[in-house]
Design a protein around this nucleic acid. Sequence first.
DNA 1: CCCAACACTTAATCTACCTTAAGAAATCAG
DNA 2: CTGATTTCTTAAGGTAGATTAAGTGTTGGG
Lengths: 192, 192
Amino acid sequence: MQPAQILDNIQKHISVSQPEKELIESLLVLQRVPKKEVLLETGKVATEIHFVSEGVLRAYFTDREGDQNIVMFAMNDWWITDMYSFSTGNPAQLTIDALEDSVVYSLSKTNLEFLFLKVPAFERFFRILMQNAYVREQSRIIQNLSMPAEERYRQFLTKYPQFAERITQKQIASYLGITPEFLSSLRKKSNA
Amino acid sequence: MQPAQILDNIQKHISVSQPEKELIESLLVLQRVPKKEVLLETGKVATEIHFVSEGVLRAYFTDREGDQNIVMFAMNDWWITDMYSFSTGNPAQLTIDALEDSVVYSLSKTNLEFLFLKVPAFERFFRILMQNAYVREQSRIIQNLSMPAEERYRQFLTKYPQFAERITQKQIASYLGITPEFLSSLRKKSNA
DNA sequence: CCCAACACTTAATCTACCTTAAGAAATCAG
DNA sequence: CTGATTTCTTAAGGTAGATTAAGTGTTGGG
């Protein structure tokens, strides 16, 4: 296992000594996730957070009508879990699965807390991660409140071109909170 | 100044020694914010985070049509700022003002970073704050994606009864992403 | 290589929510 | 206390986006 990628990601925010790096590596579990495999199921407790090394994952919420609402995508260098469940220990509201064959490094909550004790800077790293996640979610709320679907779609394309290329329009529509049919009609309009 | 309240809030998550308490207190600035006064204006940089001791504040985004979209309310024991601006140093997207005469304790970014150095547990406190904020925003996104306005309104009433009592329906409508007229019609329906 | 499943499109119809407008009720500044 | 401003309501008409349904790609497992 050589999770150089994950250490690079961490070192963008904090500096870690060689022994600390080795400790971090030793707590990460490499996991291959074939397309369609479920990493976390609604109702179970999220005991791990996952760093995406390869591929694409999604987290979605299934509503009463049985419709899937995509809450987030994750690819290269993103961390993903059901943070509500991970934080509180309550059952997960989200399902996480792979949209492509993927590779993740998983870190258990126990080991994360152990890291917080052993590598104090890791608490800082995680604080920055959570702060960025908060800012991202809030800016999505602003967009949902203030912009029509067409503009949200355009912003999605410019903000996440990596996703736009690899993810089906059905998934994008679900992320934007519209139907695939309506997204299709938006695309037709903007191509014309 | 006796910000016992704020220290209680902090000690719900971390423990701090007496000298640390005194340090924290010394970095907080008490600020009275009369109703309608603006604490942070769009376009300026958010250099402080505010702990609400009394009253009610709101943060809103003004869209191209000039409409105000309320991103968050804050009262007793909530922390509020434009976290995007506070984090990055870029101009704020939000305006923060008081809906009632309020009292806040403000902590500058410089002093917060100083605290992170001097009181390592404060990094943990802030990590928890950001983690909770992330979870809250994500659950709001889930609601916006998966529920019609009527149900979002009902959930708002049960989740934030303190707000529901003190905030006008116009503000609540803006938070829910609907017009006051439509909210009024929902209320009529559910009373009948 | 084939067929079954799924993704994408088109179009007609429908509905949740918006806009506009105007009156009634509440709040507020002087 | 009073006029002015703002909030809340009601109602008519309008639109963004949903639903349904059917047809046309694409994809992928056997």
